[in-house]
Design a protein around this nucleic acid. Structure first.
Lengths: 358, 358
DNA sequence: CAATGCACCAAAACCGATTTCGGTTGTCTT
DNA sequence: AAGACAACCGAAATCGGTTTTGGTGCATTG
């Protein structure tokens, strides 16, 4: 009855039927050289005895553990929160389809991550690795490639060839965002970017520029900024943007957390977000729902991403060549309430802000 | 050089020294019947050859996999976000101290969870389980006990005897919160609770009541409410509380998300949170930081909880009796800006609200 | 001096599967 | 009718450790 006690072995099944262990094994693993009737007899005996192959033994022999690993950076953990549980869910669901599981470890930094990789691989705890938050130049990817470990990256490095990845088309997404804002009537649009060592940051910026240029707008370098991935950084940057002589009537942030800071800044300056100034984030993070007003953002289905990554991983483990698994995920513009047509021109907005500051 | 290729086996080491495999094994596992010199020779050879024991083989023989599992409910995933990554971090760090790892799976509901348990245990993927978000009556705990699986619960069931758990002293925490608010000068204090099937909900409520009664205040049943774990639920409940003839000047929420809804409701009714009405949450969730005003909340160190749970788990696996591992974690009141002395009496507040509603 | 004990280690069994190798049957060619 | 070939399955090797069993050599005991 107990599913825990591992008592009945393949030997028992074989003995019951008076055949060899090997035959039972092959029958169960769909080898072509087993007659259908034998297979049926084996299946029946298996069911009757309640036999469950010990994956422990299987793993020893096969050298595969039916587990894939992921190591999370713990540092700025809170940033990834929203993301995390959904992504893990997608992953583990996807892996589960082939009875694979997910091993989660954490590490404080890049060096620590590599050390964990080494430990997990040396101890044969995993068959492959998932890499998240890919950097423009990512030592993890170098490491895994060098050691011939199957892996799939969520996000791309600068040179995304030769390995498996799933990514958002960041450029396209930000181009879309830019178009949306321009369509709303904005002409002076600022951008707050993330550190350019993050590959997605580079791509989002270039997508943003492409969007402006595509609509015949100039890119004012004064309005293109870059900052770190936290709220106060967004807050500060937005403040100085809005204090410009000709302030932007819309701000696009590379990330929701930054947008949250920007919203705070705008409100503090007495501006109505969504009419005086439009602010758009990126990520579809839940925190956006709690802002005043709720944040309009570019949203990706993280669970879907997880599932896709899982699928690729399984394929890789089965020997499929990595370069065949490179895919973009979809994004949508999630309109909440922080965007709208500009109520004032940039000049008018500048006056309103100046008046208040004095 | 490559730490990945598992080439050198225990046999190689033995052969190199001209001794038997078993001797090498015992030398490495600190058996008492190995002479110090032999042990040293073995150690030297191990280092020289770069031998790393294959845990795969070890696991087969020992029946232990040095892995513990946790299955996350995916449903209300976003609630647990803040929580999740920190907890996982604490866990995996703690387990890592003894080279154990964490296997993460997900399941849609209770039945699904049990199925996952069964799969993981049957496949010998884990040596034990971590249970989170414990329910008052929790089928998972029944299951694990019945099957003799080592586990530790984060949170207690109604009858918390006979198994290992780590929990917040919810009663004490809410008593503290109540005392704090009363100390501020509030007399009419409402409570918005969580579904009572959650065990923590029951305990927090009773702690809250105890706090009031301890200070000689009556518990007005009109002010004791219960709702579901989401923002809009908090929003609705707070609204109806504030529309009472004699509204509360302070509201304690069983959970930050509910508090977030309450803050929104109060602001929408034109009230200044922190002076007109005090609102306190529970969890120390990051979302509280983004609220206007930032939420005062009862905060627990989730990472510490994870580490503690991990420690217990390791002890259990080593055969330590479960009932010896039951511990409370600490909480602190994290004062941000949503609490303060009452500016108005309940009656005055009621008038202010009534005026606005009309 | 024989008997007992102890420290140390070699050899072999074992964990529970998978996989290789080889041997029977039976059918098909020629 | 003999050889070739396929289909099917049994036996044994293997994966890489751990644990049990059984000595051996040396010191201690009566």
């Amino acid at each position: 009855m107990s599913p825990v006690k591992q008592n009945v072995t393949i030997g028992d099944v074989a003995h019951r039927l008076g055949i060899a262990k090997g035959t039972v094994s092959r029958a169960l693993n769909d080898y072509p050289d087993i007659s259908p009737e034998t297979r049926l007899r084996v299946l029946a005996a298996v069911k009757e005895l309640g036999y469950r192959p010990s994956s422990l033994a299987r793993r020893l022999k096969r050298g595969r553990v039916e587990t894939v690993g992921i190591v999370l950076p713990i540092a700025n953990a809170h940033i990834s929160d929203a993301f995390l549980s959904e992504f893990l869910d997608g992953l583990s669901q996807g892996l589960g389809r082939q009875d694979h599981d997910l091993l989660v470890a954490t590490a404080p930094d890049a060096a620590g991550t590599l050390a964990v990789y080494e430990r997990l691989l040396a101890a044969s705890k995993v068959d492959g690795m998932i890499v998240t938050r890919t950097l423009t130049n990512d030592p993890r990817i170098d490491y895994l490639r060098q050691h011939g470990v199957p892996f799939v990256a969520h996000g791309r490095t600068k040179d995304p060839s030769g390995y498996a990845w799933f990514d958002i088309d960041n450029e396209a997404a930000l181009e879309m965002a830019a178009n949306h804002i321009i369509g709303l009537g904005h002409r002076r649009i600022a951008y707050i970017g993330a550190p350019s060592e993050m590959n997605f940051a580079r791509l989002r910026l270039s997508g943003f520029k492409r969007g402006l240029e595509g609509q015949g707008l100039d890119v004012d370098p004064e309005l293109i900024t870059e900052t770190t991935l936290d709220e106060t950084a967004g807050y500060e940057t937005a403040k100085s943007l809005l204090k410009l002589a000709a302030p932007p009537t819309a701000i696009v942030a590379a990330v929701d957390v930054i947008a949250a800071g920007a919203v705070k800044a705008a409100r503090e300056m007495g501006l109505s977000v969504g009419s005086d100034v439009t602010i758009i984030g990126y990520d579809g993070a839940p925190l956006g729902r709690y802002l005043e007003p709720p944040l309009t953002t570019i949203s990706q289905s993280v669970a879907e991403a997880g599932a896709a990554v899982a699928g690729m991983m399984l394929a890789l483990i089965d020997g499929s060549p990595a370069h065949q698994h490179q895919r973009f995920g979809d994004v949508t513009l999630l309109r909440r309430a922080s965007d709208g047509p500009p109520r004032l021109t940039s000049a008018e907005l500048g006056k309103k802000i100046a008046k208040r500051v004095i």
